[in-house]
Design a protein around this nucleic acid. Structure first.
Lengths: 330, 330
DNA sequence: CTGTTAGCGCATTCAG
DNA sequence: CTGAATGCGCTAACAG
C-alpha cells in the first residue's frame, strides 16, 4: 500500500495524499476526509525509509551501551527513550560490546541508518578509536556522552564528579573512625581511573601515603568478583575496617565474604558501593552507595538532545555533583 | 558522499561502485581495488534507507519490551540481539509501556520502519489489541512471542510451562513439611494467571481446596510490594510456613518482612521466587527460584528467527519445561 | 566486464 | 486548492 494506491482510489493525486498524511494545508475539507478514511481502511502507514530519503531526516537517535545487561545504563536509556518519544523521536538501543572494533561498527551503523543524534552511555566510549570513528562517520551528528567526553565540536558530555565523590566516601568513613580502608575497582576505564584517583586523594586527606594503600584493581564486575577479592583482602589485611567498591554489585559480593569471616557490617567493616542501584536496596545489610546521578545525567542529556535537535545550542560540558546515599552498611 | 561521487572520482559508473560495495562479481580487479580505496578514503557508508527502498529489505528486527528496566527481559533481548548481529541483522529495542495504545503504536512503528521480524517479550503482549495491530500492520511479518502466543499464521510462540512449574514449587514445599503456603502474584497477565492456576493445582494435590487458599493478587512488582504484602500476610495468617512469589524481586521484599518479624528462613517460612534472576543471588538468604528458562527461550527464538528469515519453516508453538533452582531459602 | 536506464515510496517544488 | 514533474541514494535489470 502506497500513497499512489490511496490516491487512485480517492481519485486524486499522490501529492494530495501526502499533504493529508503530513497534516499540511492546501487540501479541501471533503477530500481530506475521504483520504483519511482510506488511510484508516487500509491501515496505511508511510514508509519511513522513503520519507527519510527525501527529507533526509530519520527521526532516529541511537543509544550505545557496552552491555545492556548493566542495570544503571539500561535505566538511563529508558529515561532518554521515553523523553525523546514525546518529541516523536525514536531510539534504537545498541549493545556494542566492549571492543574498539565493535564500538566503531556501531558508530558506522548509526551513519548507515542516518541517525540524527547519538548517546554513548558510559566512560568506556572515551577511547581514541571512538574519537576517530566519530570524526570519520559522524562528524556533524550531535553526540552525547554520558559520563564521558571527547573534545570534538559535535560532542557533548555530561559527567558526574566521581573523583570528588569517592574522596567524599573516604572522608565519611574517616569521620566514623575508620582508618584501614581498602578500595576495589573494576576493569580500567576513564571512570574507574577517576574513582581510584578520588580514593587516593581521600586517603591523603586522612594522612595516608599512596604507596601503602590497599587498592585491588581489575576486580570482575560481578558479585563473585567482589566475593573472591574480599577473601583475599581479609587474608592479606585482616585489620581492614572500611571498604569502598567501584560498583554496588561488587560490594554485594564483598559483604558476603566479610560476613562469612565472622565480621559484622558496619561495626567491624563499613562498606560503600557506587551506582546507587537496586542491588543496594536488596542486599543485607542495605548498602550505602555513591549516587553518580545517572538519572539526572540522562534527564540532562535528553533535554540537551531535544534542544540541539531543535537547533538551539548548549554548552558542551556539564558536570553533576555526586551524592552519598547512606544506608545500613556504614 | 554517494556512490555517484565515488563513481565520478573513480571514472566509472555508479553501478560498478554498487557492485563493489556489495561484493558482487562483474568488476575487473584493478577497478575494484581503486573503488575500494576511495571508499576507505572518504569513509563512505551506504545509505541504508535508500538501499532498503529498492531491495525492500531492512535487515532490521524489532524487539518489544514493556519495560526495559525489567532485568529478565533485557537479558533476553541481549542474547537475541547478539545472535542476530552475527547474521547481519540489527535489532531495535523498543520500550513499549504497558497500555494497549502504546503497544499498538510500537507495532505500527515496526511497519513504518519495515522491520523484517519482531520479538514480543513477555505475556503482556497477549492481548486482543496486539492481535488486531498485528493483523492490520504486520500481517505477513514473522512475529515471535516469548512466553506468549497469539493464534495467527505469522506468529510463533515460545512458552515456558509456568503452570506446572509453580505446581512443582508447591510440591517441593510440601515435601519439606510445609502446609500453610501463601502465594503472591503481580498484576494480572496471562503469565500470572497461569502461575496462579499452578498454585491452585499444586495446593489441590496437597489436599487444599481453592476457596481457602491465601492468594495475594495485584502485588506491586517491586521489593516494596513484596514487603508490604508480606506484612499483611503475617498479620492475617501468622501460621504461614511457606511462600511463593511470582517474581524474585517481590520475594526479596517479602523475605525482609518475614525476617523483621523474627521468623527465620527457611526454618519458619520457606520462600520461593520466579525468574532465577540475579536478585536471587544477592539477597540474604539466597533465594530458591523457579527458572522460567528465559535464556533458553531466547536462544530458541533467535534460532527460529534466523530460520524463518532464511525461508525455512518451524513449528509455531514450542513449550519449554521450567526448573527449580534451589538455594538457601527453602 | 561496463554503463545506461528505470524505479523503489515519498515530499516538494512549480504551474495551473 | 490541485496535479505533474523531479529527485533523494541506491540496486537491478538490460544492453553494449
Amino acid at each position: 500500500m502506497t500513497i499512489y494506491e490511496i490516491a487512485r482510489e480517492a481519485g486524486v493525486s499522490a501529492s494530495s495524499v501526502s499533504r493529508v498524511i503530513n497534516n499540511k494545508p492546501g487540501v479541501n475539507k471533503q477530500m481530506r476526509e475521504k483520504i483519511q478514511q482510506l488511510v484508516e481502511k487500509y491501515h496505511y502507514v508511510p514508509n519511513e525509509a522513503a520519507r527519510g530519503l527525501v527529507t533526509s531526516n530519520s527521526k532516529l537517535v541511537g543509544i550505545l551501551i557496552a552491555d545492556i545487561r548493566a542495570q544503571h545504563h539500561i535505566r538511563g536509556a529508558y529515561h532518554i527513550a521515553n523523553e525523546l518519544a514525546r518529541h516523536n523521536y525514536f531510539c534504537m538501543i545498541l549493545n556494542t560490546g566492549n571492543s574498539d572494533e565493535e564500538r566503531t561498527a556501531c558508530i558506522q551503523l548509526l551513519r548507515q541508518r542516518q541517525a540524527e543524534a547519538a548517546v554513548l552511555m558510559g566512560s568506556t566510549f572515551r577511547t581514541t578509536a571512538v574519537q576517530v570513528a566519530i570524526e570519520q562517520f559522524l562528524p556533524d551528528t550531535p553526540i552525547f556522552m554520558m559520563n564521558g567526553f571527547i573534545a570534538l565540536p559535535n560532542v557533548y558530555g555530561v559527567l558526574s564528579d566521581e573523583r570528588w565523590g569517592i574522596a567524599d566516601c573516604v572522608a565519611m568513613l574517616g569521620r566514623k573512625g575508620k582508618r584501614s580502608i581498602a578500595f576495589f575497582v573494576d576493569q580500567p576505564t576513564p571512570s574507574s581511573a577517576l574513582k581510584t584517583e578520588g580514593f587516593i586523594r581521600g586517603m591523603a586527606a586522612l594522612g595516608r601515603e599512596e604507596s601503602g594503600l590497599w587498592i585491588y584493581r581489575d576486580v570482575e564486575g560481578s558479585q563473585n568478583g567482589g566475593y573472591e577479592t574480599a577473601k583475599r583482602l581479609l587474608a592479606e589485611h585482616p585489620e581492614v575496617d572500611g571498604l569502598i567498591c567501584s560498583q554496588d554489585i561488587i560490594a554485594c559480593g564483598a559483604m558476603r565474604a566479610i560476613q562469612n569471616s565472622g565480621r559484622s557490617i558496619p561495626a567491624d567493616v563499613a562498606v560503600i558501593g557506587v551506582d546507587n542501584s537496586s542491588y543496594a536496596e536488596i542486599c543485607t545489610p542495605r548498602l550505602t552507595s555513591l549516587d553518580n546521578m545517572i538519572f539526572d545525567s540522562c534527564v540532562t542529556i535528553a533535554h540537551k538532545l531535544v534542544d540541539v535537535l531543535n537547533g538551539d545550542s548548549t554548552n558542551q560540558r556539564t558536570m553533576l555533583l555526586t551524592n552519598i546515599v547512606e544506608r545500613e552498611s556504614t
